[in-house]
Write a protein that binds this DNA or RNA. Structure first.
Lengths: 145, 145
DNA sequence: CTGAAACTGGACGTTATTGTCCTGTTTCGG
DNA sequence: CCGAAACAGGACAATAACGTCCAGTTTCAG
């Protein structure tokens, strides 16, 4: 339902939030299990959107611009691929303005619930979650079956 | 966020629910404002999934198999493109089984909220909604600005 | 100044989605 | 039986998403 690029961007953002210091695209790619060359494009997008800052040269890499408790999942999602709410009737014939029909009202309500959930989760929340599985799944602090 | 095909399928399902009798692909296409040739494919999918029944020849067309109050938005969505919940860690390295990390737990919760919303809306609910905009937006029972 | 590290951006290939078109097959009315 | 109505399904085209590769540019260490 969410695009691959969004998934990649979220993994990268969570990783960068945890690290706190500049990390190269290669490092992020390995930690998040994302194709490096493609991740590069995704990070470029995040950079243009002002989510991350890039620094070239030795010691450079990618850093989050905001503090993890100031950056929500929604911010990241919207930077890559805006979560589009249904504003007007998709059929477009008779613009109902803000009055969507019963079908599209329900679809948009579902979108809204996703938007709200994402808006209320900051990266800090994700990192602080008392969950035995570490956010990027690369390691595990708990026992496995 | 939802694919175009899903949107088309929902429009078609709502229309067929309202009509109650066989309607040809061309009729559905006009009412729902969907490219007829493409809608044909979408309806074929709904037919294979057992959502609609097709009847060839004169007087034939598409009909809903179930009663509108027995068919949910989720049924239609899943017939076209299954709403995929996140069951296991997308990184796949160390399968955490049912224990998703904090990030994917949140993403899956969002999916679940959509799934639940769709599961609790039947086509009958959509048709009975006291909304001035008629479900397919092609007409309007209320005044417009 | 030089070179390695690291991002930037364009070109390109692959695949999935969306959309079109046409031929065939089933069905029913007369 | 015949023909029109209507779906079925394959072939194809256009577009976007996903992914790869490489040359160029910035930056810092020494």
């Amino acid at each position: 339902m969410l695009s691959q690029s969004v998934e990649y961007a979220l993994r990268a953002a969570v990783f960068l939030a945890r690290e706190g210091e500049p990390r190269t695209t290669a490092q992020v790619a390995e930690a998040t299990q994302v194709p490096a060359a493609y991740l590069s494009k995704v990070l470029q997008g995040l950079s243009r959107a002002g989510i991350v800052r890039s620094q070239r040269g030795i010691g450079g890499g990618m850093t989050l611009v905001s503090a993890p408790d100031e950056l929500t999942i929604l911010d990241v999602v919207n930077a890559v691929e805006p979560l589009q709410r249904i504003e007007t009737c998709p059929l477009g014939l008779l613009e109902h303005g803000v009055k969507l029909c019963a079908l599209h009202r329900r679809l948009d309500n579902a979108m809204k619930s996703v938007e709200d959930a994402f808006r209320h989760s900051t990266l800090a929340d994700v990192l602080a979650d008392p969950n035995p599985s570490v956010p990027l799944c690369g390691g595990n602090t708990a026992d496995e079956a």
